[in-house]
């Protein structure tokens, strides 16, 4: 049998590779944008800048989601943990006046704790990821409402006599909410890209990343090859929680308040980003580059629809169709 790779099959291999297909989906979306360019608005720099800024929070969630989905798990709690973290961060910084070096790590720890709890339920008690994180999704939302008393936490501080005093937002809010390089790149976008880079290195270069792929590919084989399956899963969910909390801080900064309802339904967008990127829901296949691609594709899609003033109803229906289309496209070339 001839096992050499002929040039033709090299081309077809490239064509079949997941990264190529993910890029193709993104290219398709951009091509649509070029056609329906809303009288040239699509070609303006600020459109792309706004898209990046808009997708950043979702992108951070998708980073964590990628880690978990690669283990063939899922984390439905990312949106709720985002809400909890937004509330906590606003409470600490705006209301209690904690300094940033204390408020940020505390929020991140809270998020990681949520993730580790789901991870523990999954790894130790063998509860299905869907169920365990569904429970955490509900619980974290409740916790966010309890902490905030059900109200949005903003710069308005209620005084003893019942009147409100508007305080100035602390420095951390301004810095995280600002844009750099002449107002071109939002700090939040930089945080997203940094998270993506860290997750990329983790998946591509670290032993932990390799173990996550092995678990997703064949958990029993991984276990019998000495992979510490429980610990690795725990870390994956813990990191996913931590990243959700980071997204929560960014969200609070962008909104200038901590809304206990923040992030409802975001888990679905995060999953959509991962799937459109081409990471397999069955686990074991995928990567951070793909998710970055998926985030851009979803971001551009939403931007194009809003530029062309497509109504919300149509927008949602189109998004659904496009998700199915993208996934079918990826399946087709198997």
């Amino acid at each position: 049998m001839n096992l050499g790779i002929s040039p033709k099959s090299r081309v077809s291999r490239l064509f079949r590779s997941p990264s190529f297909r993910a890029l193709a989906a993104l290219a398709l979306v951009i091509a649509i944008g070029c056609v329906f360019n809303a009288e040239g608005t699509f070609f303006r720099w600020h459109t792309h800048r706004d898209m990046l800024r808009h997708i950043s929070v979702f992108g951070i969630l998708a980073c964590g989601m990628t880690l978990v989905i690669i283990t063939s798990g899922i984390d439905l709690a990312v949106g709720s943990v985002l809400g909890l973290s937004a509330v906590l961060f606003s409470l600490f910084s705006l209301q209690l006046g904690w300094p940033a070096w204390l408020a940020v790590p505390t929020c991140l720890t809270a998020g990681a704790a949520c993730g580790l709890t789901s991870g523990g339920l999954i790894a130790r008690f063998k509860i299905q990821p869907f169920i365990a994180t569904l429970a955490m999704m509900v619980f974290a939302r409740g916790l966010a409402k309890w902490v905030s008393g059900g109200r949005k936490i903003s710069t308005a501080v209620q005084l003893a006599d019942g009147s409100f005093e508007y305080r100035e937002a602390p420095g951390v809010f301004r810095i995280l909410g600002s844009k750099l390089f002449g107002g071109n790149i939002a700090v939040v976008t930089l945080i997203f890209l940094a998270c993506a880079l860290v997750c990329y290195v983790l998946l591509a270069r670290l032993r932990l990343g390799r173990q996550l792929f092995a678990i997703g590919g064949n958990e029993e084989a991984a276990r019998l090859s000495g992979v510490p399956v429980s610990a690795a899963k725990l870390l994956a969910y813990g990191l996913c929680g931590l990243l959700s909390a980071a997204a929560g801080i960014c969200h609070a900064v962008q909104e200038q308040q901590g809304d206990p309802e923040a992030g409802a339904g975001y888990e679905l967008t995060a999953i959509a980003i991962v799937v459109i990127g081409g990471t397999s829901m069955l686990g074991g296949k995928g990567g951070m580059g793909l998710t970055l691609n998926g985030a851009m594709a979803i971001g551009y899609l939403e931007k194009i629809l809003s530029l062309n003033a497509v109504g919300e109803a149509t927008r949602l229906m189109l998004t659904g169709l496009i998700i199915v289309g993208a996934v079918l496209f990826q399946k087709h070339r198997k």
Binding site: G217, N218, E220, A222, L224
Partner: peptide, 18 residues
């Protein structure tokens, strides 16, 4: 309980001695 089908030959080989 042996192969990780999604992984390459090389990565399957190195799995137990990572």
């Amino acid at each position: 309980s042996g192969l990780v089908p999604t992984m390459s030959v090389g990565r399957n080989i190195s799995l137990a001695s990572l």
